[in-house]
Design a protein around this nucleic acid. Structure first.
Lengths: 225, 225
DNA sequence: CAATTAATTAATATTAAATTAACATCCAGA
DNA sequence: TCTGGATGTTAATTTAATATTAATTAATTG
């Protein structure tokens, strides 16, 4: 899947900035709007994968906006998540029957935000797909349990190694460049040294066997199907 | 099992609508009532698998309603879950005395709600107690009595420890992140220090033995099946 | 309301994991 | 076959996360 598009809608610029920063850092393609009206226009134009909507906005509020969006046919698949302030409880969020898929409550905690977003988007792409298997079927990863299975045996991998393997295996055969790997595992603003990826690759090869991960010199790495 | 029937009881229409929407979306057969009295009538008629009862209602409150329902013989198997607003913590204890099987606190978060409901219903169809067995000896927890059994002996756990264990054990092998743990045991807006979870984990390990709960560094904790 | 018990924080230690450093190797092209 | 850029390798180092224990605060309970 290419980069996922998120439309972020809030009238408060602080929040726009804050959330936008965090999402961009994670590699999402973020577009912002400051009103329901603008949001609808933009949504029609860019067809985002996910819309994050503040409930309380002057003019057209989140719920109304949500309704509007839901009524557009080709935006059927678009996920919608509400942002709601602490204190406004479900009664205001009751617009769930407006067709929202989840909600996030303020104050926003970056880590939680990101993990929620990821979960929501993962849900969309083919249900809760937690296991990926390569063609021979002998390597399997389970995100929920954070385990890697090889020939029936299970192994517990450290986080970065796990994420790296998960990334490569998510599209067997596809070459992932170092930049892409850095972006998706370390995030945009983390700067790590040149040999970091190599070392993780080494560890993976050590554990899985050499032939699974292939180096394409000058390009990147791929998981051999 | 066919579609499971849920009777939802609350005097606030917002909540009825909100919860009902979410449950229906998940494929449950939802019936609603707005008072304890109505609830009892309906319960007798439709014999739901699960009743979700608001604690605070004008007239007959949730606890009284629960007692009432528990006294009906052919509703023995019906599960009862309380809904209670944040802050009214006492209802947990009082609720269990009245014969409730679980409780859900407001504000309601859809995903958590669903997963709790699922867990509750799963418990029903697979025996009343959550039981988990692993290599040496087995561990069993009983929500109704708030007791933990290990190798036949029973132990009484403090609330937080109990909830934590119950959460982890509810899906053996699954890694629960700190965020998720905080969300489901402390609730989204309670902020506790960084080491609080660790200390509870420590206590659990102290009581159960080290190997039951495994740490996945940088990710979370899991109960080893 | 004193006495327990539980929950949380504080302070520090410990450890696994991540990163870097230092050097080796490989390989394409001059 | 020399050279330089790229990757490989191993060990050393640093960092981040968790563990631990004690101390403090909150809550129950008799």
């Amino acid at each position: 899947m290419s980069v996922e598009k998120i439309l972020l809608v809030d009238d408060e610029l602080d929040i726009i900035e804050f959330v936008s920063y965090n999402l961009t850092k994670e590699g999402y393609d973020v577009t912002t709007a400051t009103s329901g009206k603008e949001a609808i226009e933009l949504a029609k134009k860019i067809k985002p994968d996910l819309i994050i909507l503040d409930v309380m906005m002057p003019g057209m509020d989140g719920i109304e906006t949500c309704h509007e969006i839901r009524s557009v046919d080709y935006l059927k698949d678009t996920l919608i998540t509400f942002l709601s302030a602490r204190g406004e409880d479900y009664s205001q969020v009751a617009g769930f029957d407006a067709g929202a898929d989840d909600y996030i409550s303020k104050p926003i905690k970056p880590r939680l935000l990101i993990s929620k977003i990821k979960a929501i988007l993962r849900r969309k792409s083919g249900g809760e797909e937690l296991e990926v298997t390569n063609q021979e079927g002998n390597i399997k990863i389970d995100r929920e349990k954070y385990l890697v299975y090889k020939d029936g045996k299970e192994y517990s991998f450290p986080k970065k190694e796990f994420e790296l393997l998960a990334l490569l295996i998510s599209k067997p055969g596809k070459v992932f460049t170092r930049e892409v790997i850095l972006e998706s595992i370390w995030g945009g603003d983390v700067i790590v040294g040149d040999r970091t990826i190599d070392v993780h690759i080494r560890k993976l090869r050590e554990k899985l066997g050499d032939h699974y991960i292939k180096t394409i010199k000058g390009v990147g790495y791929k998981f051999e199907a």
